[in-house]
Design a protein around this nucleic acid. Structure first.
Lengths: 222, 222
DNA sequence: ACCTGAACACCGTTCAAGT
DNA sequence: ACCTGAACACCGTTCAAGT
């Protein structure tokens, strides 16, 4: 991270795939998914909309590239020497934090499964699953479960960030939502909604990871 | 299901929210998300595009309603008397199967978390978590983990269905994908890709549920 | 090789006008 | 109350024309 030279502004006038993707990330961060248009992007890059197509095939490819850019190096580089369970938590938290900083990434991740970014996460989770000593036959299931859980939380958080009005407190939003529920039809949801006051998304995310890890540990000991 | 009367075709000319949503589901099933336009829908309903707006506020509301329609009564009604773990599997499979039949639902579910359909699934999962004897403090985490996992798988399956070319076999698609991977960078992914031949999405989905259930069982016994 | 910007096809949404 | 369909604003993408 520190050793990478920023060549973005070397020649401010020259267009490049790199500059386009960087600008796209900025637009997405500021204006969200609906704010990323080729016209807005072109305006920010002080060029015509068509120019972008010389470097990027289409909008879909641009979104993939932007996601990849954000997720590359998200989280610490593999924590070597750490216990596998700890490394898995680190990978998962890396994704979680990246999506919290760039909510649109959450939507994007569960949109294109072949995305290099997703495969990289899968690979890192899988290696630690191996390191846990899970039998070969169970490794695929275990790694998939971890990945799918992470992507599920991620997409859900992204959606919530999108939904909640800019000024709105998220907990307040969820509370008003559960207040609308018929207690007869939603007794459980109403009950847990009471715990929303001291709710910590990150802690709950980790709790889910730990449930999976506990289940996976059970596989090992058999 | 058998007792519900089909009033859809009672008066074929009368427009109604019901008919609009039904038609939207059909268009989505046939043409996917990108195929659902107000013009296409209006054509199918033999009316003008503007007419739809009398019954539905906007496209977003229409998508929510369509998702709700598909997921209502998805899976068996709560399996009363069954062991909680079995009931949880049934709820999860109900969502899984519904999304397999209507891939666009998967994308939609992780798009609007406040969706009634999602809350209904959460409520059903939560009640069974309670029935498992999980302590009050852990119920929220456990039910959330289950829900997020289900939504993660669901979104991923939807994306894969969208990605794979119409004629393409899905396994073949995944295999060609992993064949492109650099074995040095993706050793784990390459290894498990070998297991894709006898891969069963549904079984893997259940394996993940079982990992979570095992983890949750660990909570109970403490 | 790379950029410009007008043009094309298409979309969600609105609304005056009808019945 | 409900429907019609043209019109509006906007989008992704293309492409002849420039440098």
């Amino acid at each position: 991270m520190a050793t990478r030279t920023r060549n973005t502004e070397r020649r401010e006038d020259a267009l490049s795939r790199q500059r386009i993707v960087d600008a796209a990330v900025q637009v997405l961060d500021v204006a969200g998914e609906s704010g990323l248009t080729f016209r807005a992007l072109a305006a920010r890059l002080r060029t015509g909309a068509g120019a972008i197509y010389w470097h990027v095939a289409n909008k879909s490819e641009l979104l993939v590239a932007a996601t990849d850019a954000v997720l590359t190096g998200a989280g610490a580089p593999d924590v070597v020497g750490a216990p596998p369970a700890e490394a898995i938590r680190a990978v998962a938290l890396g994704v979680f934090d990246a999506v919290e900083a760039h909510p649109w990434v959450g939507t994007q991740l569960s949109r294109t499964p072949s995305q290099r970014a997703v495969l990289r996460v899968f690979e890192r989770l899988g290696r630690q699953v191996q390191a846990l000593g899970v039998a070969a036959d169970d490794q695929f299931d275990a790694a998939s479960a971890l990945l799918n859980y992470v992507l599920g939380v991620t997409a859900q958080n992204a959606a919530q960030a999108r939904e909640a009005a800019p000024g709105t407190n998220r907990v307040a939003f969820l509370e008003s939502l559960s207040a609308d529920l018929d207690p007869d039809l939603y007794p459980f949801t109403r009950t847990v909604a009471g715990q929303l006051c001291d709710h910590d998304d990150r802690a709950q995310f980790l709790a889910g990871i730990d449930l999976l890890l506990a289940g996976i540990a059970g596989l090992v000991q058999r």
